[in-house]
Design a protein around this nucleic acid. Sequence first.
RNA 1: GCCACGGUAGCUCAGCUGGCAGAGCGUUGCCUUGGUAAGGCAAAGGUCGCGGGUUCAAAUCCCGCCCGUGGCUCCA
Length: 617
Amino acid sequence: MKILLIHSDYIEYEPKERTKFAEDCDVNRIRVDECLVSFISVERGDSEVVDRAVEEIEDVARKLNVDKIVVYPYAHLSSNLADPDTAVLILKEIEKKLKNNFYVQRAPFGWYKSFKISCKGHPLSELSRSIVVEESDVTQALKVEEEVVSYWFILTPKGELVDVDSFDFTGYEKLVKFVRYEMEKRRAVDRVPPHVELMRRLEIADYEPASDSGHLRYYPKGRLIKSLLEEFVTLKCLEYGAMEVETPIMYDRNHSTLRRYLERFPARQYIIKGDKRDFFLRFAACFGQFLIAHDSVITYKNLPLKIYELTRYSFRKEQRGELVGLRRLRAFTMPDMHTIVRDIEQAKQEFLNQFKLAVEVLSEIGLNPDDYEVAIRVTREFYKEHRDFIHSLARILDKPILIEMWDQRFFYFVLKFEFNFVDALDKASALSTVQIDVENAERYDISYVDEKGEKKRPLILHCSLSGAIERCMYALLEKAYMQAEKGILPMFPVWLSPTQVRIIPVSERYLDRVIEVAEDLKGRKIRVDVDDRDETLGKKVRDASREWIPYIAVMGEEEVKGGFLTVTVRAESTLKQQKKVRMSLDELAERIVKECEGKPFKPLPLPMLLSQRPSFR
RNA sequence: GCCACGGUAGCUCAGCUGGCAGAGCGUUGCCUUGGUAAGGCAAAGGUCGCGGGUUCAAAUCCCGCCCGUGGCUCCA
């Protein structure tokens, strides 16, 4: 809403000619003396700002000490006008509210009017106000969340459900940390998280000050790692039987179905102004996939039906203080798979399959069950009805898991699991997760046809097999850091290492031969580079080690003559003792190829010769 | 959004009881041609976050703002 306020000696106006939106009125000349004239343009969405507008006008009127207010519809203050019907309603409402405390004259809407006005000309006599709709980015679900009462238990692999306070946590150090983190939601760390320093030092990712907070830049090495993870998780979903789709990243804010869904999802959105409509940026792939499902003809023969998308990106406008490095971002990449199932039995079966698949995916990425803790969140009702099923989940990984139970269903799901990574600062964050959604098939009007030809409502599973890709990178970095603290040399899995082999010539004399060897390895789909810089051998070895390169091959006279490589194997070395192995080129190549079996491959994302590389920071 | 801390060379940081802008690393050049965690010498490199104020004089003191990190909050 745009308001122009004029403190006037008088205003005189007279309706002259109707427009097609004209409201009925007496076409008399009106004069009001000693008044505040409010020229108002009602804009789209202004029904929410009436009270604030009234407050503003009253506030000015009081300051000027006037008791008469003229409400004057004036379209020319805005290029984003509300429709006339709404505008009249809003103006009338303003009139009504102002009348509580003032004498109010409202000029008729929809007329060409002549007017004369006399402005007093003191400093406060001409004011303008622009009242915008406050983006209520706090959804209903966010508010509800504050009221949720949780009951906490530990479920043992033997199937005992123990109250959290009576569980003996001896031997379950990480679980304690996780439970504390979940329940107390309090910690006192005053450090930059280790992975933040690592992601920068290793030239993986960095903050981008020119963007919004929580949007990172990825350097070639980071892009490579991210891209391999993206491809890997995608392939896992496709192998599992999912159909890959691609859906828009922004949606109409006023779409009735989506609007209701937004209300149920506790996340803040980015709002984008379009030509005519406002859009929000997706925070997951649910919308796009549900809308596809809504328009699809699905029969019982198609179930379970799996749809998959890698969201690059999902957007969540987290509060500033919530953002951390790769752990929590405003733009992140998430594999998002939805499974449409016919009933609760099929839902349970898929839930179980996906639980197991998530374990497998994380372990291939380099995160073992020791690295995360399992949480199950469930309504009391669902727990009672499916106790055996839920207990069976604890047996899969053979470790106690945290159960959070609610008396009522506050959210759209009845059951979910999460694998939570506990980092070097004892903070937990969710990686893989699957939820059984009992609400959205209805909301999106998704149905399938059963054996009898009847339309039925399915259930929907939400699954992120690995969790956000960035978060996997965060977990790998944090894990490496924690291992380094224990004296283990930190590294990435070989298939994710940007450089898998670095070859270092003992002197420039051997460079040509070294490049030949490197080209050979490169031809075998191995990421190999060559340190051709004018530095000492010691320095080059040190630098390679600081880059966590799994295989460092040194070539000098001996190697060239003998036709072998002297390889420092990082995985078998310690801080004190390097493990050096004599290997043939074939042996090294075979070893690496084997270690990367079944994983995607991408070539070295940088020039092979180190001397040709820029330093990105 | 609130609280705390921070922003000085490409990076990490010192200087901050006001008085010539500093170090290490990196970069460039030269020497060095080497056998497994930093070889030597030299040079280049600055809007001290931005704006205002105090002062003869401000990186330093004061005010405002911006950005970052941490904590709170939040984390489907």
